[in-house]
Design a protein around this nucleic acid. Sequence first.
RNA 1: GGCCUCGUAGUUCAAUGGAUAGAAUAGAAGUUUCCUAAACUUUAGAUCUAGGUUCGAUUCCUAGCGAGGCUACCA
Length: 599
Amino acid sequence: MQSIKLVEILKSDIKTTFQELYDHILTPNELSLLPTRKEFEGDYTFVTFPVVRYSKKNPEETAQMLGAAIKNNSALNVDFNVVKGFLNIKIDIKSWLETFKNIYIDAQYGQLPKKGKKVVTEYSSPNTNKPLHLGHLRNNFLGFSVSQIQIAAGYDVEKVNLVNDRGIHICKSMLAYQQFGNGETPESSNMKGDHLIGKYYVKFDKEYKKEIQQLLEKGMTKEEAEKEAPLIKHAQKMLQDWENGIIEVVDLWKKMNGWVYAGFDQTYKRMGVEFDKTYHESETYLLGKAIVEEGLKKNIFYKKEDGSVWVDLTNEGLDEKLLLRADGTSVYMTQDLGTAELKYSDYTYDKSVYVVGNEQDYHFDVLIKILKKLGRPYADGLYHLSYGMVDLPSGKMKSREGTVVDADDLMDEMAETARRHTQELGKIDGFDEAQASELYETLALGALKYFLLKVDPKKRMLFNPEDSIQFHGNTGPFIQYTHARIAAIVRKAEQMDIHYNTFDVNNLVNPHDTVRPIVFLLDDFHRLIHEAAENYSPALIAQFAYDLAKEFNRFYTEEPILKEEDENYMKFKIAFSSQVAKTIKMSMGLLGIHVPDRM
RNA sequence: GGCCUCGUAGUUCAAUGGAUAGAAUAGAAGUUUCCUAAACUUUAGAUCUAGGUUCGAUUCCUAGCGAGGCUACCA
């Protein structure tokens, strides 16, 4: 059973009343209610300015008239006040308590009804030439969280990863390894495979720059030098060899990618993200080439004299875009065409979401336009979830220059900080070693995920390793702590054999002031899940979890729970707290964050 | 040059066109014989500039200034 939200009842009351008074049916847009601001008395506020043209009275009078009539009509037993044309409506506490009761017994709370629509969400999409860094963390946490939110909102979700396992950039690290590696392996160097490969990607860039420098000294222009350096030519040759299936190249590729995957798996596991399916570009680029052929036949694409294939999007306000190189090898766009096609034939999705940074806005603009030109039925369902870069105080991260915050290192440091902090506070009495280190992981990942997810995904954000990750204030651990404190109370109540489910909301006299705003939040959870799903925004859920924890902490500080003398009220308070804990757990779960029972 | 984002307390982030612009952190002052003080309370502090639309603009429009991204036969 889904509990009916108070706000919906109220809206319907306003609509009916307004129609009776002024003979106008308010549109959903005109019927918007705002939460009443703290400094005023009330739960919801109706702004009368936009509707005075129907009432033909000034805002103040309209609000007074409407308020009085609603007070008469509504079963919610409302009260009201008017401030400058703002109609503040206060719902009787009994209705709020009844609402709480409904939420408490609702087994479906936190899960919206199934929509029967399929969403494929692609995220992570690593390159196999370097380890994951801070930017990938934002991507992975975002992709995983958005998927969880969509599931809660009623979508059928498939999480997929598209591994960038081929291309010129992969050849660069392969080439550097071949030339400078001396047969080094993850075992021999005692490095995670992805880190080992990353080392050679940096090495390539270093040697390549040296060659460019030498050519510059011989009088070449920078542009020429970049094209003519032996290493880059060699890498290009290697890419062709790879596409032609030259056995030594393919073997080396397999070996090195295998190392990288082993490293990635370890990191994904620690991050707590997972995929229903993993695609590899090495398996999709050929399909992409076939689509390019199709487009050529249909004259949607065209071939230049050197043999390269292009699409002309100047009529769509964009440029011409390369789809196949003159040497016949495929580019990024070729692969993405193939992958889109493959995903659709695998899942027949309604929506296909790409979690990819905003530096690729143009790329996805082009991709979607091309698929539309090709008349693909799924083109309209494509959505680029374009998130902002994570900057460091020193500016942008550049993997080739080694100025990145490595994902594995960062998680290590976070866990270490969590350990130090926890031990200083002496919070782990009675923990064995395994429990303690599990807690450090939970806190470290909670802090990190919350920090990266609480910001609007679209916006660029700053990460300051020195002082960005805190355990106080608007942070993951703050919310986790609130959960742990409630868990302790519920534990104790159960030890005391208190059957708190038997509370009776009809016999509660004068519950604490914070009950109302907390139930308000609990009642708002489903709306927020919907909102967060439609906007692909975990930030809304993060804000919700924080508001709930914050509000509850006041209740916790001001109200003794187990020491309450009125037995019915005590039971209510335990049930109430446990519901807050459950809701915190669910909302944090939507962010991919675990909450501990003790900390 | 062209195209696209973004400019909010010292700092990091909020605010479907609505009331006196919210938090956190850093600063100042308090709260613990009482369920976990990783908490709570109080205090001070901000919309880049100039126009426009509106009953009402941080939000929409125009121009300027500032920051970033894209504009690769890299991905």
